[in-house]
Structure formats: structure tokens, C-alpha cells
Measured scan of single mutants.
Amino acid sequence: QVALSRTQVCGILREELFQGDAFHQSDTHIFIIMGASGDLAKKKIYPTIWWLFRDGLLPENTFIVGYARSRLTVADIRKQSEPFFKATPEEKLKLEDFFARNSYVAGQYDDAASYQRLNSHMNALHLGSQANRLFYLALPPTVYEAVTKNIHESCMSQIGWNRIIVEKPFGRDLQSSDRLSNHISSLFREDQIYRIDHYLGKEMVQNLMVLRFANRIFGPIWNRDNIACVILTFKEPFGTEGRGGYFDEFGIIRDVMQNHLLQMLCLVAMEKPASTNSDDVRDEKVKVLKCISEVQANNVVLGQYVGNPDGEGEATKGYLDDPTVPRGSTTATFAAVVLYVENERWDGVPFILRCGKALNERKAEVRLQFHDVAGDIFHQQCKRNELVIRVQPNEAVYTKMMTKKPGMFFNPEESELDLTYGNRYKNVKLPDAYERLILDVFCGSQMHFVRSDELREAWRIFTPLLHQIELEKPKPIPYIYGSRGPTEADELMKRVGFQYEGTYKWVNPHKL
């Protein structure tokens, strides 16, 4: 086992960053958080920038500027975001240094004079007029057009580079997404736009490419001749908990499936790229999406959770019991969808996408189930092999396979070949997804960000279904809070070829 401390991990990262040409360590950078008073800024962006600063992973002359409508001070920003920093008493001095680099400007999102004030403020910072500028839009999409237009007109660096990070949702359907994309691309070049999907920053999602293309053993079996089906799962054990009003506007397909799960599907299904260059990788992902037809209604199961009468606390409440959810809402909190990649490698292999709230566990994984062994000599005792990439929690890679049961006879039983990170790298604290992705933006690497043509294809696949749901308002199937979801989803999976045995229990190697 390799035991690495946080300091050692960050030392390795620093070495990698400083050796590259793309990370300008000594240049002045300004990180501007648009929507600095909001939840995302408070819980994710400010803490992430602090962790990067604490670990010495930001360029040395980096300033952080918050911008929002609320009249706040840096002290206010500190008060609301610091509880999420997880700072230790030993880091007190470092924390003071961090907040000394912070400033805040209040202004409207659609007022040109406010942006001119913001620009004057940035120019007044040390070497601010020639600094590289990175704008993070932690804002609702309704203000994107006004904000990007004003940034472009008043706040661009004339000497350094300018980059803009856009948070999902990128529209509600193909038409609104196209409108937003066309607007942003009329102001910024594609190499300046970073559409963030934080799932692409997760260690195991990034590991998929290495697993596939750096190991000879997987190449020959990664196709329709050997793989019976692919299941991509995202499960949350909690409901909307008072935030249903926002969720109800989008629903589970827009929230998770059309982005996170579809991105994971691309990494499983794509061909080997010409290189690890950002556009070479994204070219292959677009090719996969172009091979997927629009979702067919007979390959869809929609569910909505109801309270568990035997549960406790939140578990007793259904989705419609959330006071922020519109009365009688038919918005799905669970969806199972089957897609097919219609190309030579994957023809006929079902890709089953499942996601839901208020389920029995927290889990995100990719599961490849292989065909049955031909010419069975073990009297149907063999179960199908599976390769599982567990994204969260407890990152893991393992192969479910058959071995001989101890004893006199040739009785096979299920076991696993474990390729888990935790076994080799004991207690290594890896940077989280937002840390990686923000560092990628500083480096100018777009590999783990969504390109406009990729986004367009993703919406093309799901828009007809979303429009049909909005028009017909089908009643989702009720499922109990804390269950596996509607049984109809299991029946759909069985119908397209997935075999669920229920006889195997994964042993978490992190707890051995």
C-alpha cells in the first residue's frame, strides 16, 4: 500500500502544474464570482478556492472578487462561507491571508454602469489591468444573457486571457439551449467557454479513460460480442427537503440524466481518441451522441416518491408533501431510460440510465454486464461477469466473477477481482471535483468540460421526450421513500436483457 498525506498529494500536483506551459504561476489572475451571495458560491466555490489557495495550487498573485446585487462586505462573505471551509486552528494565518486577497463589488446584473465599476475595481488591483480574468457564473440561467453581454462589453482583460465558467442547466430543451449557446458564442470563442459538469471532475469518471485505453485486457472485450448491457446509475437517499420548488422546474431527467449520466455513457462508449488533447476527446464523445436516436417512450419509466409510513423524519414525507412543490405536480423524481448506440461496436446493446431521489442508498456507478459463458459445464450455477466502476461513495473498480467454492467439488461461487483505489492508495485525500475543474480552467484544459456541439446532441436525444411529458403530463409511478424505485423499472431492465441475480454482496474494501 502507498500512504500519501494531503501535503504529498498537493506537492505532486504542484510539480505537475508548474512543469506545464499552460499554468502561468507568476502571472496575476483575477477570479470573479458572479452571484457571490448565492448558495453555490457559499457552499462550493469559495470553499474550493480556499482549498486550492491553502494547498498552494493557485497562481501566487490571485485575487478573488465577488459580485452580486446584495450590498455585502468581505466580512459578510466570510461569515456565510467559512463554515464550509473546514479550516483547522493551525490554518488561521493562512485564512487571514486568503481573505486579504478577497474583495466585493455590489451591482445589478443588467446595468452597464455596475460592470464599469467592477472593471475599475479590477484595474485598481495590483497589475489588475493586465491580469488573466476568470469569470464564474454562479447564477440562474435567466440572467446569463445580460451578464455575459455586460462582461464582454465592460470587463474583459485587454492583455491577459479571459475565460468564463457556465453552470448547468444549459437551457431547458434543445431550442433554449441553442439560443443560449448562440448568444454566448457570439461574445466569446469556444476556447474561452467552460460549461461545467462537476461529474466530469470526479476521480473515477476520469479513471474510465485510463482503464479503457491503457489496459490491453479490456480492449478486445469492450464491444457487443461480449457486453450484454451497460447500466449507469445515480441514486440519492434523500428527497427534495424543502427545495422542491427549484427541482420541480427541471425534474430528474434535466437535473441528472441528460448531463451526468449521458457524459458517463460517452466515456464508456467512445472510441479511442487520437490523443488526450481536449478536442480529440470531445470529438469522440460527440460521435457517440450522434449514434444515439431520440428516446422512445416505451423505453422510459418515470416515478415519484411517496412517504414511507414506517419511516422516520423526512422519510415519512412524499414529494408532494414538500411545501415548495406545486400542488398535484407530476414532475418525476425517478427515471429509467434505455438508449442504444447504433454503431458497429455497440449495435443492440442497451445502455440503461437510472437516477432518482429518496432511494435506498447513495450511489453513482457504471456497471457493464457481460454475456453468459458459452457451453456451460457447471449446471447453470454460473452468474454473469460484471465490471463495476463505483464513482461514489467509496470509489472502487471491481470485476464480479466466478471462482471455485472451497471444498471437494467443482462448485462455482461469485467473488470479485478488486482493482480499488483504496487498497493501493491508503487514506489518500484526493482533490474534489470542483478543485480539479477550476484548476483545469486556470490551465486552459477543456477536456472535462462540455463543448457546444456535445451539448446540442445531448438535448436532441431528450427534448422530444421532455416535450411529450410536458404536454401529456403522465402521472409518475409512486414508489416508497427509501425503496429501490418503481418495480416497473426493474421490469424494463429485465425486458431489454439485464439479469439481476441478487445473490452477490459487494464487500467494501475500504472497511476491511
Rank of each mutant, 00 (worst) to 15 (best):
K426C: 14
H371V: 08
E271C: 05
D490N: 12
D432V: 12
N259V: 12
G356Y: 00
F449H: 04
V441M: 04
A297S: 10
V256R: 15
G311I: 09
R327D: 12
D283I: 03
Y340R: 08
L417E: 07
N259K: 06
G328E: 07
I480V: 10
V391E: 15
L339I: 10
N394Q: 15
I377R: 03
Q380T: 13
A364G: 10
E491S: 08
P486R: 01
P509S: 10
L368V: 13
L262C: 11
N508C: 13
H379V: 09
N308L: 09
T330E: 11
R362P: 12
W506A: 15
V306Y: 07
Q446G: 11
H379W: 05
G407S: 15
S445K: 08
R354Y: 07
L465C: 09
V349S: 02
W459G: 14
T333G: 02
S275L: 04
H379A: 11
P486M: 03
P393L: 01
E386M: 04
Y434T: 15
V281N: 03
P474K: 11
D418N: 09
M447N: 03
T487I: 09
L302K: 01
L261S: 02
M447S: 04
Q499W: 14
V268I: 12
E414A: 12
V391A: 15
F334M: 06
N298H: 11
F442C: 03
L466I: 12
P431F: 03
V325S: 07
E344C: 13
G318T: 06
R456C: 10
G497Y: 12
E491I: 05
E342K: 05
D310K: 12
V388I: 13
A332H: 02
D255Y: 12
F410W: 11
G356K: 02
V388C: 12
M408A: 14
E395C: 13
I477K: 12
L439Y: 06
Y500F: 13
F334R: 01
I292W: 03
P412E: 04
A358Q: 00
G348Y: 01
G307A: 09
P478K: 09
Y340F: 08
L353C: 07
A364W: 10
R390G: 15
T333E: 02
P474N: 11
N259R: 12
E435T: 10
G303W: 01
K357M: 12
D376G: 15
R384C: 10
P464L: 04
L262I: 02
Q392L: 14
N298I: 08
Q258A: 13
V268M: 07
V441G: 04
V496K: 12
P273W: 00
G307W: 02
S329F: 00
V300Q: 03
L353R: 00
L430G: 15
I292Y: 02
N360S: 14
Q380M: 10
L261R: 01
K383H: 14
K511T: 11
V397M: 15
K426N: 09
L262T: 09
T487V: 13
A489L: 05
C266E: 10
V366D: 02
V428E: 12
N259P: 12
T316M: 10
R424C: 05
F351N: 02
Q296R: 12
G502Y: 13
K317I: 08
P309R: 11
P309S: 07
S445W: 13
V288P: 00
K287W: 03
P406R: 09
R345M: 13
T331P: 01
S329Q: 02
S329C: 02
P412T: 13
P273H: 00
T503W: 13
V366I: 13
V325Q: 04
E416Q: 13
V373L: 14
P509I: 13
C443T: 05
E314D: 10
D283Y: 04
H371C: 10
T399G: 13
E416L: 12
D372I: 03
V349I: 08
S329I: 01
G444H: 04
S293Q: 09
D279P: 12
M408K: 10
I352M: 06
T316K: 10
V325D: 04
A458H: 14
E457S: 04
E454K: 01
E342Q: 13
G303D: 01
L439Q: 10
A458G: 14
P406C: 15
W459K: 13
P273C: 02
K363V: 12
I352E: 00
V507F: 15
H510C: 13
D321M: 04
E344W: 06
N508E: 14
M264G: 06
E457D: 06
K285F: 12
T487G: 04
L439G: 08
V507Y: 11
S445N: 10
K357L: 10
T330Q: 10
L439S: 07
A374Q: 13
N343L: 01
E395L: 08
L267R: 03
Y481A: 14
R282E: 01
K357I: 07
Y340D: 02
P474F: 13
V338R: 07
N394A: 14
E284I: 01
N385R: 00
V337S: 07
D432S: 11
D372Y: 03
P350T: 00
A335R: 01
D255G: 11
G356Q: 00
P393T: 04
R282T: 08
L430P: 14
P412Y: 14
F449D: 01
E342D: 13
Q468S: 10
K511H: 10
A489P: 01
G303H: 01
Q369T: 09
I389N: 00
T331C: 11
Y340K: 09
Q263A: 14
R362F: 11
E361N: 15
A332I: 02
L261P: 04
